[in-house]
Write a protein that binds this DNA or RNA. Structure first.
Length: 519
DNA sequence: TGACCAAGCGCC
DNA sequence: AAAGGGCGCTTGGTCA
C-alpha cells in the first residue's frame, strides 16, 4: 500500500496493510465498520475491481463540502487535504479541477490527517442545531458515493446492436467520419431547397440570415419559436434538429466512447448540483433521450426493475411544511386529484398552483390559483414564500437535512443595489424557493438509494439513478423481491427524513425486459 | 491552434 | 400539458 493511502475504520487505528483490498475484505466481513476515506471514487473503485464491496462509509471530501456550505463557504476547496490545511492554519491548496487533467495528482493525505479532519467534522456536526438531521445527510451522501462508484463499475445494460439498428432506422447507415448520415443530409438538403440556397442548419447565424432573406424575422432559432413560423423550411429544419441531436449526442461515436462489453459506464458526480442532485461527467447519462430507452435491455434470464417516485416534490413540501391539508392530499396516490376539489374541481389547476408555488411561476392563471393555495394551504404556501424572501434578501436557505445553498455572489450584491436590482433579487428568490424543495427531494432520493442498496439480494445490482428514478438489474426470479424492496426502501426513506407523517411517497416498480416498456 | 462563450436542446 | 428551477453536451463562432 502506498504511504499516505487513507483508509481507516472509525475508532480504529489507521492501517497500512500490504494488500489493501484483502485487508478491507477481511475487516468488512468481521466488523462491518464505517470506512472513512478522503474520496470514495478514488479509493473504492480499485476495491470494486478486486470484488470487494463495503456497506458503509464516511466520505471526508463530500462531508467537508456539506459543512462548508452550511457555514456559508460554498465553493471553498473541500478535499481532505484542503480540510486538513485549514484545520492546521496552513495555506489551503487549490482544488484540483479533475484528476484526469493533471499529470501529477497531489499526494493523498496521510491516514492521520484524515483522522484529524474526521474528528473535526464530527465536532462541527455535533455543534449544529439539528445534528441528527445533518448526520443523516452525511450518511446518505456517503452512501450515495458508494452507489455511484458501484453503478459506474457495474454499468447500465446497453445493447450496441439495438442502438445501431435504431440509429440506422432514424438516420440511415453509419456514415464515414465527418459526414452526415443519409437521412440527416436529405433533411439538410430540403432546408436548403426551401431557401433556394445553401444553408448550414447547424449554424444559428446562417439560419437567422436565411429566414430574414425570406421575410421572416427571428429572435432565436429555438424550436418553439420556429413552430410558429409559416415557411417551407420549418418542417424539415425541426426534423433535422431533432435527429442531429441524436446523432451528435448519442450516436455511434458516443457509443464507441462510452459502451464497452454491453455496458454504459458513466461517471456520476455525487452532489454535483448545488441542490444535491447528482451530475455526470461525460456520457450524458442523465440526458438519455426517451427514444433510446429501448436500447437498455436486461441480459437473458434477467430483468430490469424500474421505479420512479410519483409527484415527489409536492409531497416533500407537504411533509416539510407540516401543512395538514396538503399532507392529507399527499396521503393519496394521486396528490393532484386529491387537491382538485380545492381548485374548482380541476386537477390541472391544482397542479399549476403547486408547481407555481414551488418554482415561482407567474404566467397565465398562476396568481389566481396561488391565491387559492395561500388560503387553503397556508403553511405550505408560507414555507416556500419564506424561502423566496430569504433568497431575495441575500440570505441562505437549507434543505430539510441541512444542505445549504450558495451565498449570493459579489456580482449579485452589486446588481441588487442597481437599477435592475429587482430582477436579480426575484431570480435568486426563485432559486432559493426551488432549492428547499429540490434539495429535500434529492436527499429523500439519496436515502432511498442507501436503503435499497442494503436490501437488494445478490446478485441484483443498481444500474441507474436519475433524480427520482432507479433501475435495478437482477435475475428474473428476483424481480418480485426487488419490487418489494423498492417500496420498502421508499417507506423507510420517508420515515428516516420525516418520521411519522401522513404523507405517502409512492414508488411503484415494474419489471421489464427493456427500459422503454417501463412507462 | 486552443480557449472560451452562446445557442440550443436532452433529461428531471 | 403547460409553468419553474437544476444540470451536460455539442456545435458554431470569436478572439488571442
Amino acid at each position: 500500500m502506498v504511504a499516505g493511502e487513507t483508509v481507516l475504520p472509525v475508532g480504529g487505528t489507521p492501517r497500512r496493510p500490504a494488500d489493501l483490498a484483502e485487508a478491507v475484505r477481511e475487516l468488512e466481513a468481521a466488523e462491518r465498520p464505517r470506512w472513512v476515506w478522503a474520496d470514495t471514487r478514488e479509493t473504492y473503485t480499485p476495491l470494486l475491481e478486486r470484488g470487494v464491496r463495503v456497506a458503509r462509509c464516511h466520505d471526508v471530501a463530500l462531508t467537508e463540502g456539506l459543512l462548508l456550505a452550511y457555514e456559508g463557504l460554498h465553493g471553498e476547496p473541500r478535499s481532505a487535504r484542503a480540510a486538513h490545511a485549514r484545520l492546521r492554519g496552513l495555506p489551503v491548496p487549490e482544488e484540483q479541477p479533475s484528476a484526469a487533467g493533471t499529470l501529477f495528482a497531489p499526494e493523498p493525505p496521510a491516514a492521520e490527517a484524515v483522522a484529524e479532519v474526521l474528528a473535526d467534522q464530527l465536532g462541527r456536526v455535533a455543534a449544529l442545531p439539528e445534528p441528527g438531521r445533518f448526520r443523516l445527510l452525511v450518511a446518505a451522501e456517503s452512501a450515495g458515493a458508494l452507489v455511484a462508484a458501484e453503478m459506474s463499475h457495474e454499468g447500465m445494460p446497453w445493447r450496441k446492436d439495438v442502438h445501431d439498428a435504431l440509429l440506422t432506422e432514424l438516420l440511415g447507415p453509419r456514415p464515414v467520419h465527418g459526414m452526415r448520415p443519409a437521412k440527416l443530409q436529405a433533411l439538410a438538403d430540403e432546408v436548403a431547397a426551401a431557401f433556394g440556397h445553401a444553408v448550414n442548419p447547424d449554424s444559428v447565424q446562417q439560419l437567422v440570415k436565411a429566414f430574414k432573406g425570406a421575410g421572416v424575422a427571428l429572435k432565436t432559432t429555438r424550436s418553439w419559436e420556429l413552430k410558429r413560423v409559416d415557411h417551407p423550411a420549418v418542417t424539415p429544419l425541426l426534423a433535422y434538429k431533432e435527429l442531429a441531436r441524436l446523432f451528435s449526442a448519442h450516436g455511434w461515436v458516443w457509443a464507441d466512447q462510452w459502451v464497452r462489453g454491453g455496458r454504459f459506464r458513466p461517471e456520476y458526480v455525487v452532489g454535483g448540483v448545488v441542490s444535491g442532485r447528482w451530475a455526470t461527467n461525460g456520457g450524458g447519462a442523465l440526458q438519455i433521450p426517451k427514444v433510446m430507452r429501448r436500447v437498455v435491455m436486461a441480459d437473458d434470464g434477467w430483468a430490469l426493475v424500474v421505479a420512479d417516485a410519483a409527484q415527489l416534490e409536492p409531497r416533500v413540501l407537504a411533509a416539510m411544511a407540516g401543512d395538514q391539508g396538503l399532507a392529507g392530499a399527499a396521503g393519496e396516490i394521486d396528490l393532484y386529484a386529491a387537491l382538485a376539489q380545492s381548485f374548482g374541481g380541476e386537477r390541472a389547476n391544482a397542479k399549476i398552483a403547486m408547481l407555481s408555488a414551488m418554482y415561482g411561476g407567474t404566467s397565465g392563471d398562476a396568481s389566481k390559483l396561488l391565491a387559492v393555495m395561500r388560503q387553503r394551504f397556508p403553511k405550505a404556501y408560507q414555507f416556500v414564500e419564506d424561502a423566496a424572501k430569504a433568497g431575495e434578501e441575500g440570505r441562505l436557505v437549507r434543505s430539510w437535512l441541512g444542505r445549504t445553498c450558495p451565498p449570493p455572489s459579489q456580482r449579485w450584491r452589486e446588481l441588487v443595489s442597481g437599477p435592475e436590482g429587482g430582477r436579480a433579487a426575484r431570480d435568486r428568490g426563485r432559486f432559493t424557493r426551488n432549492f428547499v424543495v429540490q434539495g429535500t427531494a434529492a436527499e429523500w432520493a439519496l436515502a432511498l438509494l442507501a436503503v435499497l442498496r442494503g436490501l437488494l439480494p445478490e446478485p441484483a445490482r443498481l444500474v441507474f439513478f436519475q433524480h427520482d428514478e432507479v433501475m435495478v438489474h437482477c435475475p428474473l426470479e428476483q424481480a418480485d423481491e426487488v419490487i418489494a424492496a423498492v417500496s420498502q426502501a421508499a417507506a423507510e426513506a420517508s420515515r428516516l427524513l420525516f418520521g411519522a407523517t401522513p404523507v405517502r411517497f409512492p414508488m411503484e416498480a415494474v419489471a421489464v425486459g427493456s427500459y422503454s416498456d417501463a412507462k
